[in-house]
Design a protein around this nucleic acid. Sequence first.
DNA 1: TGCGGTACTTACCTTTTCGTAAGGGGAATC
DNA 2: GATTCCCCTTACGAAAAGGTAAGTACCGCA
Lengths: 123, 123
Amino acid sequence: MAKAPRIGPYICGIDAALDVVSGKWKGLILWELNAHRVRRFAELRRGLPGVSEKMLTQHLREMEEDGLVHREVHAEVPPRVEYSLTEHGRTLNQALGPLGAWGSERMRRENSEVVDVAEPSHG
Amino acid sequence: MAKAPRIGPYICGIDAALDVVSGKWKGLILWELNAHRVRRFAELRRGLPGVSEKMLTQHLREMEEDGLVHREVHAEVPPRVEYSLTEHGRTLNQALGPLGAWGSERMRRENSEVVDVAEPSHG
DNA sequence: TGCGGTACTTACCTTTTCGTAAGGGGAATC
DNA sequence: GATTCCCCTTACGAAAAGGTAAGTACCGCA
């Protein structure tokens, strides 16, 4: 049980969309899956530096439930599980395009502020 | 202190953007402020059904710190505080446009699934 | 004199989220 | 034969986020 009903009375579309992408790694998962089309669990894990197996599974399951991610299990030994974006996942990624651009701009702004304050060789 | 450093080593732009809008009411605040150009604290409060004063203040402060919201205090009695979007806030809102459209679509989809379960004779 | 409205702040508590560590079952590798 | 890899699951605990309720200082209104 990750988030229970998941059918909230949203006020507006932003609300409904943010509900699906809020989660520490979901943005990255979307990004990875969009870049590589299809990824196995361990590949995804290596692509997200710092993620734990538990969180990765949990997020993947939620995104599957939300209809963003397709999960395909191959009955082999050792097990092979492939993740990819569904149609909704792909359109979500497109919708996130402008937001990503805004975020990159923000990162640039932040960096140019940070160099004034932070120091590389600060004891 | 709400979120401390706020200058994380983001992996991509999505990451950086989601950090600023994640928060239970931030999407709505952006929406309200964009629709009305300028709003007072109590107006905002009434526009966000269910928000507590604490959370509204907290979110507003974080958004101010993130450079999205402009806060103008008029030294009057009773106090009058006006909130509006900054330039960055407005561009963020524009960047959220496609995401909002995607969310609305999702709401429509969800609703057509929900009518099977929830009360059918409604609106 | 008491009440409601203004814009908060503070203390305290519950809920949600995230992280850490361990286990599991089989097969290939060293 | 011990280890590693695969894809998880479970238990436990810490941290963050959010909610509730009260207090603050001032004023207009009845």
